[in-house]
Design a binder for these strands. Structure first.
Lengths: 131, 131
DNA sequence: TGTTTGTTTGCGTCATTATGCAAGTATTGC
DNA sequence: GCAATACTTGCATAATGACGCAAACAAACA
């Protein structure tokens, strides 16, 4: 498969928020789904800790599931923008997209904070326009 | 249900990483699972934009699924630490745990960066101890 | 060309999850 | 107590997802 990684960071902008920060833009279910499976998470952690590109075979060694399962998980992770795939000969190398991931995570945190009412008060300012 | 929200931030520390930053600690599948469903995401976005506690009924108005489905999703989101539940009379108010969410997201970003090799080089320093 | 190696894909199975409806519980007001 | 309101729970169904096995594919090598 000619892995066409999404060029924009993992959480692809969807539609603009109605009345506050660009929170919808960063709350992409597809992005979070990538991390919602324990096996997938351990694969990402394994590659992340390596700090370099890892082949499918290498990654498969660090967990107990079938080789084909690892292959499928890694492909999914690449599709959702978490990993970057690079083919070299017959070997497929997957690498964590550190910068893009960090940017997405921090952008979401920023967007959340924009929605957040004053740190102590809990009254908020909903005018009914948003929900 | 007496909603006992997890007191620690959403991503509950699990086990320490083998050879680098505390990345496993923040890569909690349960946390990400909360955001992996489109319906749930829209509910969170709705409450987040309001910036205050919203009742189940209010939230249900902003999406097309059954009332009971909303109730269940909100309960799940509270269990996974994304929302905070507060009962007032017969009304249940759900509020986004902004601070805890932001902290979790930023901690994960930090942990990822710790694993990240030098910004430009892609060689990394895997010694085989981690995967 | 045939074989080995590294990875992907098809397919069937099992488990989990999302959903709606109807019935249940809890709290308030009459 | 009784009815209304706000929400939760039980149950059945349909959809989705994870998994392993076997076969297919692609690149390198003999």
């Amino acid at each position: 498969m000619t892995q066409t990684n999404k060029q924009p960071p993992p959480a692809t902008p969807k539609q603009a928020a109605a009345c506050c920060g660009p929170i919808d833009q960063w709350l992409d279910p597809e992005f979070f789904k990538a991390f919602s499976d324990p096996t997938r998470v351990s694969l990402v952690a394994c590659i992340a800790k390596c700090g370099r590109g890892c082949s499918v075979g290498e990654v498969a060694e660090c967990c107990s599931v079938d080789f084909s399962v690892v292959s499928r998980h890694l492909a999914l992770l690449a599709r959702s923008g978490v990993l970057e795939a690079r083919k070299e000969g017959r070997t497929m190398y997957y690498r964590v997209r550190y910068a893009e991931l960090c940017r997405s995570l921090r952008s979401l945190a920023d967007a959340l904070e924009e929605c957040c009412p004053a740190p102590d008060s809990q009254k908020g300012t909903c005018n009914g326009a948003c929900c």
